[in-house]
């Protein structure tokens, strides 16, 4: 299955950079081993419509990102698919400048774009709190979760 792995986040905003580090770990692993065809790994700082646009033409997407839910211990790796995410944002949001990813995907599909189904968008999230302060490094508890999160991503490939 043609799969895109996206490390999502901002590499200069502390633990928000964890998605990139996990994606880079996955890429290192793929390069070191014989990997299935049609897997591409990317690191992006995007959301909403822009993120949807990167998914055009892919059958399956694995998103790796920091999660600030307050419902898990920091560093805990949580997985769910996009279809299980409740669409609470009726309107513009994501940021005030954009749509939520789910709405962006709806928009794309309504315009005929070849996009993966919500159930084929798997999210691997790492619970984190320090996602607001400028820092290029991860907190120790988040850095320690990178190998596990990478293993979880690999298990989906």
């Amino acid at each position: 299955m043609k799969t895109l792995v996206i490390g999502l986040g901002n590499p200069i905003l502390g633990d928000d950079g964890v998605g990139w580090q996990v994606a880079q770990e996955v890429e290192r692993h793929l390069l070191a081993h014989t990997s299935p065809a049609f897997i591409v790994v990317e690191c992006l700082s995007l959301g909403g419509i822009s993120l949807m646009e990167t998914m055009v033409g892919w059958q399956r997407v694995i998103l790796v990102d920091a999660l600030d839910s307050g419902q898990h211990r920091q560093g805990e790796v949580v997985t769910f698919s996009l279809d299980s995410v409740e669409e609470v944002a009726g309107g513009h949001s994501g940021s005030v400048h954009d749509l939520s990813l789910k709405n962006a995907l709806k928009l794309g599909r309504s315009l005929g774009a070849d996009l993966p189904r919500d159930e084929d968008i798997q999210i691997v999230a790492i619970e984190a709190r320090n996602v607001f302060d400028f820092d290029e490094s991860l907190s120790p508890v988040i850095a320690a979760a990178v190998p596990e999160a990478a293993r979880v991503v690999m298990s989906f490939l």
């Binding site: 986040g9 901002n10 905003l13 928000d16 959301g47 990102d65 999660l67 839910s69 940021s95 607001f132």
Partner: peptide, 10 residues
């Protein structure tokens, strides 16, 4: 700057 989930704006 931040794109961490859940990324909604209630």
């Amino acid at each position: 700057a931040t794109h961490s989930l859940p990324g909604q704006m209630p």
